[in-house]
Amino acid sequence: MANPNPLMAKSSGTDHADAAIQSALRTLDAEGSGIAAITAALQSDLRAPFVAATDLINNAKGRLIVTGLGKSGHIGRKIAATFASTGTPAFFVHAAEASHGDLGMITADDVILALSWSGEQPEMKNLITYAKRFRIPVIAISAERESSLAKAADVALTLPKAREACPHNLAPTTSSLMMLALGDALAIALLEGRGFTSVDFSVLHPGGKLGALLKYIRDLMHAGDSVPLKPLGTKMSDALVEMTSKGFGCVGIIDGRGHIVGIVTDGDLRRHMLRPDLMTASVDDVMTKNPKTIGRDMLASEALEILNSSKITALIITDAGKPVGIVHLHDLLRAGVA
Rank of each mutant, 00 (worst) to 15 (best):
L315V: 05
D15I: 05
I139G: 00
A48I: 13
G211P: 04
A338S: 15
F91I: 07
A185S: 09
D331F: 11
S72T: 09
L170A: 07
L333S: 15
S310P: 11
H168K: 12
R163D: 13
A2F: 15
L332M: 06
G207C: 14
R334D: 15
R275D: 01
T27M: 05
S72R: 08
F196D: 01
A153F: 05
F248V: 04
L190Y: 03
L269A: 10
H259N: 15
T39A: 13
L191P: 07
C250R: 00
G70W: 01
L28W: 11
I21A: 09
R270Q: 10
I312N: 05
L186G: 14
D18M: 11
Y216W: 10
A20C: 11
L269D: 12
A19K: 13
P89W: 08
L210K: 06
D277A: 03
D297Q: 14
N3L: 15
K215R: 15
K209C: 03
G70F: 02
D15T: 09
G267A: 00
D225C: 11
S148K: 14
E123F: 13
P6V: 05
I260M: 04
P167F: 04
I106Q: 07
R145N: 06
A53K: 01
L240G: 12
S23M: 14
I141D: 04
G104Y: 03
I38D: 02
G211F: 06
R26M: 14
A108E: 10
A19H: 12
G193V: 05
E242H: 09
V286M: 00
R257N: 15
D225L: 12
A17N: 09
Y130D: 01
T280M: 01
S142K: 06
S226P: 08
G87Y: 04
R47S: 12
G68I: 03
L46A: 08
A303N: 13
T265A: 00
M273G: 03
V327W: 03
V337I: 03
D200P: 05
N5Y: 07
P172V: 02
N5Q: 12
P49E: 12
L28P: 08
A60R: 05
A131N: 10
L28M: 14
A156C: 09
P291C: 01
I79E: 02
D277I: 04
A223S: 14
A36H: 14
I326S: 02
L210M: 13
G87N: 00
M124C: 10
A17F: 10
L315Q: 03
A239R: 07
L191A: 06
I65N: 07
A140P: 08
G207E: 09
T280H: 06
A80I: 06
V199I: 15
G70I: 00
L56N: 14
A80F: 00
A108N: 11
K161T: 13
S282P: 01
V51C: 12
